[in-house]
Amino acid sequence: MAASRFILTGLGLSPLEGEDPLGIWELSASRTTAFAATAEDVATAEDVATAEDVATVEDAATTALPPGATEQGLIWRIELPASRREARSELETRLTAAKVRQAYLETAEKRLSDLHVGSAYSAQTDSAESALLAEVMALRGSAVAYDAGDTGAVSFLHLYEQCEALVARFRRLVQYYARVETSVGGQPVALTIIDWSGDYEVTWQDGVGPADMALHLDAIRLVLASRQAWLRLVSVVASGALSLSIKASVPGGQFLLFPAVYRFVRDVLAGLEQVQASQEAPG
């Protein structure tokens, strides 16, 4: 029996930034061959990337298109099994997950606001706060701990590059309208475009039945909940980075801390998800 797939294309997150922090969508660079760069080709943070490399990746994602083709924007594809009951169950599970993640974001935001950057300390590295604080202190103390040498410059450069890549991805999230495509049992059901003013254009496959119509409506709800959660996530990251930079007295840190805070939020979400999963596990 075919499994469900929930694919988001056009966001272009690199594997380093991880999968969808919501844990709902497969992130795919593009479904057409128009895009020269795929997710796997994007330089990772571990690699020593240069500004030019980053620019190349970004440019590739936006310019390497065949004649006549256009930037696709975000496409949310929902491939559901032929069993309507299973399909509905899948959608409900993920919709619940999206709403739960939004609640988790509240937790992440709270934990960010509770973070104290007072007396310097080192901490165990197995908590999200610890990892974040370590990065903050590294940033704060780098001017002293590191001499003005290549190592320090490269570190900062890394941060800028990561941040730029992240911002570029977030920009795609708000730059393009949402397109939702649903198929059931391999058969296309409907395609819906939602633009920025909230207008809907829904195109149904001729002959589609009410059960499949309902599935597509649920798919739209899932997409909107996911997009909502993504925007919320970016909002939490932005405010968290700003708040942290002020606490840490790192001028300009609200930019540099973007990637670190993003990873913190992502780790918090994953941690909470693990806790829930362990509590719900049988036995």
Binding site: A120, S130, A148, A153, F156, Y160, P251
Partner: peptide, 24 residues
């Protein structure tokens, strides 16, 4: 709870932005 161990307090951050200080 994370276990925190006090370490010497680091000097205050540079008045100028570190990135600028590094030519970035």
């Amino acid at each position: 709870e994370p276990v925190f161990q006090p370490v010497p307090v680091l000097p205050a951050a540079l008045s100028d932005h570190a990135a600028i200080g590094y030519g970035l």
